[in-house]
Each structure stands twice: as C-alpha cells, then as structure tokens.
C-alpha cells in the first residue's frame, strides 16, 4: 500500500488537471518541508511519472507511466468509492485469492486488488487464465451490496456492461457481450469476468468480481491453442492502450451503474446489457454440464437469465452454461 502523503500529492496533481502547482503550495497542503516535497517528486519520477518543473511556477505531471500501481490508478480517478483503496502487487498467485482474504479481513467496499502478473490466474471452474506480465489488467473488486444473495448474479452482467463501456470510451472499439459476461472484440474474446460470493443464507458479506482484460498482448503472447479465439485490445485497435486510463474509466462506469442498480434495480442495466449483446436473435448452443441445448437466444429475463427457444418451441431458461455462437 502507498503512503498517505503520496496519495495526497497525486490527488493534488489530479485536481490541478495538468496545471502547475508551486512547491510552496504542495509543502503547505502536505504539511512537509520543501525538501520533502522534492523527494516525493523524485520518487514519482523513479516510478516512471514524467514531471515538468519550472521556476516560480512549480510542478506538473505530463505523463503517467504505463504501470498500474495505486499511484497511476488514483491519479485522475473520479470515483468516490470504487478504487479508493488499492492493493497492488507486482506478482500474485491470483488477485481473486488476495481479494477473498482482504474481504474476509474486513476490507471496505470498493477495494481493488490489482497485479502486473498472475501466476495462477483462474477462470471458470479453475481453468487457467493466461495472464502474463505487464500486458493486461488483472484485477478484483470487492463489493458489499445490501441485496439478497440470489440477486448477486445480476452483478456479473453489470460488470460486463461497465467494462464494455470503459473499453468503448478509452479505445473507441465496439465491444460485444456474450452471455453472461464475456466481452468480445470482432468476435474474439478479450475479457473474462469471474465473480465469487461470500454469503450467509440471507446476507451477502462480499461479492468479489475478478476481471481479466487482454490489453497490450501481441498475438504470439497467447498460447497457440487460443490464438484463433482470443485477442487483445491493442491488436484490435492497432496501438498500445494505457492500462491505468482504462482501469479508471471502468471504475467510474462501474460506480455509476452500481449506484443505478442499487437504487432502481436491474432494469436499467438490462437495457444497456442488451445493447451490447451479440447473441440475441441468433442461433446459439448452450452447453451445460449435462446437456447441450440449441436454439434461438430470445433475450434475458428481468433476472438476467438467458431465454433460449429450442426448435420445438420450448423456451429454456438458462442460468448457467457456456455459450457457443
């Protein structure tokens, strides 16, 4: 975790929105000497921030590094709750595991766990999620919503909408959502979301939303067996994407949607989700553990359940399945 002074300093630069702040002003607000300010500035430089220092004007940040420590994420972050507590480590087994532990120990709502590298990134049913160093966003968000546990799956659809909106804003790409929450760009998977619940029978302790985004991988960096079906945002966009910017955008979208959801329920989220859905109106196959159902995706219910009309006209309500387009 970063120091409180560091957090305040970055907040000052955020608020200045690219204008200069004098060393005098910084030392007054932070309550430390000019020399200490200079040392903090040097520390930021070492971490890859580019700062301009001009006599009589002061300092300003001209470029944040393509790192995703708490510094870069909180620099310019506009949320009130999400991402206000960040737990960063360069290398972790899995951000989900750490988030579980933090949640159990009482970490507040909005706590974000983020890492450059996951050694045992997980997908559905412990399938490995390939998460090499410095190329993607591997993060887990802790929420503590006061909703009944059986409604919690809706949050996975909400998460997909938030990530899709963030990607769209930062990259200009047009993401598609495949039920329930895979994100595809031009038909290839770029984002996976896995959510875990800590709950008692009637009360949620925490919802931990794990989000893996392929951001800057080159095609050779994917294992051969998934090169045909996976992609990264930079491959689709044709240029590198700043990961911290993307995380900030996603957190802000997420917070807005989450507020709407807590206040108005799932309906507004459902409409947005349908706007991104790639499968509605199409023939798809739903693979469940014991069965495969082929049919036309009619849409989702007010609970987020997929409605699939089989050839015999029977409508199946799918709560859990792998969808093949």
């Amino acid at each position: 975790m970063q120091s409180e002074t560091r957090r305040k300093l970055l907040e000052l630069f955020s608020q200045a929105k690219g204008d200069f702040i004098s060393g005098q002003k910084i030392s007054e607000i932070l309550g430390c000497s000019r020399t200490a300010v200079w040392k903090h500035i040097e520390d930021l430089r070492k971490e890859g921030f580019e700062l301009e220092a001009v006599r009589r004007l002061g300092y300003r940040i001209t470029k944040a590094p393509d790192k995703i420590t708490a510094n870069e994420i909180q620099f310019g972050l506009q949320t009130e709750v999400l991402g206000r507590h960040i737990y960063y480590e360069e290398e972790v087994t899995s951000t989900q595991k750490i988030a579980h532990k933090l949640a159990y120990e009482g970490a507040p709502e909005g706590t974000l766990v983020v890492a450059e590298l996951q050694t045992t990134g997980r997908g559905r049913l412990d399938r490995t999620w390939f998460s090499p160093k410095g190329t993607g966003i591997w993060m887990s968000l802790i929420l503590r919503p006061a909703i009944p546990p059986q409604k919690a799956p809706q949050l996975t659809l909400l998460a997909a909408v938030a990530v899709a909106q963030g990607i769209q804003e930062v990259t200009g790409l047009f993401p598609d959502i495949k039920w329930p929450n895979d994100i595809l760009i031009n038909g290839k998977k770029a984002v996976g979301i896995l959510t875990e619940l800590q709950a008692e029978s009637e009360r949620i302790h925490s919802v931990i939303i794990g989000i893996g985004i392929n951001v800057n991988q080159e095609i050779e960096q994917f294992p051969e067996e998934i090169q045909r079906i996976a992609t990264s945002l930079s491959l689709e966009k044709g240029e590198k994407i700043n990961r911290a910017e993307l995380i900030k955008a996603i957190l802000l979208k997420f917070e807005t949607l989450y507020r709407q959801y807590l206040q108005h329920g799932f309906l507004p989220i459902k409409l947005l989700w349908e706007g991104y859905s790639v499968s509605i109106g199409k023939e798809i196959i739903a693979h469940t553990p014991n069965d495969s159902i082929k049919g036309k995706a009619l849409g989702i219910t007010d609970e987020g359940v997929l409605m699939l009309e089989a050839a015999d006209g029977v409508i199946h309500y799918i709560h859990s399945a792998d969808i093949e387009l």
Partner: peptide
C-alpha cells in the same frame, strides 16, 4: 452453486 459465472461457495453452517 454457480449462476451467470457467479460462484457461490456454500458452507455447511
């Protein structure tokens, strides 16, 4: 118990 990729670890209680 899993629904919509939300995994709920059920404890014995």
């Amino acid at each position: 118990v899993e629904a919509m990729k939300l995994f709920n670890e059920i404890e014995a209680e």
